[in-house]
Write a protein that binds this DNA or RNA. Sequence first.
DNA 1: AGCTTGTAGCTAACGCCATTAACCAAGGGG
DNA 2: CCCCTTGGTTAATGGCGTTAGCTACAAGCT
Lengths: 187, 187
Amino acid sequence: MPRAGLNRATVVATGAALADEVGLANLTMGSLAQRVGVRTPSLYKHVGGQGDLNRRIATLALTELADAVGSAVQGCAGRDALAAAARAFRTFVLEHPGRYAATLGLEPSGPDDPMALGSRRLLDAFTAVLRGYDLDVSDVDHALRMLRSLCHGFATLQGANGFQWSADIDESFEWLIAFADRGLRTL
Amino acid sequence: MPRAGLNRATVVATGAALADEVGLANLTMGSLAQRVGVRTPSLYKHVGGQGDLNRRIATLALTELADAVGSAVQGCAGRDALAAAARAFRTFVLEHPGRYAATLGLEPSGPDDPMALGSRRLLDAFTAVLRGYDLDVSDVDHALRMLRSLCHGFATLQGANGFQWSADIDESFEWLIAFADRGLRTL
DNA sequence: AGCTTGTAGCTAACGCCATTAACCAAGGGG
DNA sequence: CCCCTTGGTTAATGGCGTTAGCTACAAGCT
């Protein structure tokens, strides 16, 4: 029959898009096959299986996220950089919940795993933000983990509808950025 | 044949324990049935299905978590209360990852949903912590979300092995508590 | 051009999982 | 003592991921 002209990159990208639409848990090999116009087993010619697909989506997501945060930070420093990074992070998670969910709970296989590379680039972007505050070296790792926890926690809780009560969520996020900025400046 | 003497509570409790052991995603009706010593379809006499089971595990988890945080906070105030609440939260999530995972991404069906009740009690415990800092009323909701994001983010990232690099994780968590305390005291 | 060969697609089949239907026995309340 | 609620059973269905084995497209060599 006519070749569909698929390749690994399109399969992974379509899978990521589908995961964003229907949720990672509902990303099924059948639905992905249908989306790319092929029968289910054909996907295995491009991808090792669901685990492998998930891993590749995670790698894509981490790369994109690192790009987004990295370029948002360009040209800012201090509080502006912090706000830009945090907003870019949250925007990405809310716009691409499936991709982001794929990145959680995976261990990098080795140091040259492209996933670990994306992870490191993301970390570097946040490290650059912290360079705008003159922290003691012993504080940098902790501050990094604090920022990551804040961004990850807020974004995933919002994505999971974890904030039920009244106050405006965007306002809370800006408040949170201001809080972190104040804390970092007075260390 | 001989009755196994099951009831809803034991099924849910065993399901929660199993989810903690093998991960919520690997909690299967078959494995749970085996654990309680019964054939799979028998579970449906006690529980509506996998979704219902998940919901009941989440309710149990939220109740336990609210109890843990609530009693940890008893008799402390200010920084001590904050530290006690945060530690209790993280300990619970790390010791019961399956239960906690079940609580995410669920919408309470109604205002008298027992799950919403547990959720509210947990919220109340954190609100009590904040009462030790004299915040402007307009800040309370934002501060609450900040604390929830911090605790949730840190605990889930640690549980997912999201902290790869070197620094000591417990030390980071204590640093983070101190950071939040300082920020809250200087609002 | 024609043959070859690698490979992207297909169908068929298997096993696991959740769920439902239909049946059966245990055991307490009249 | 009987009955009928109820907690257990086996059998069957449908959806999923995955593998095996086949087919036919298309590129490359002669």
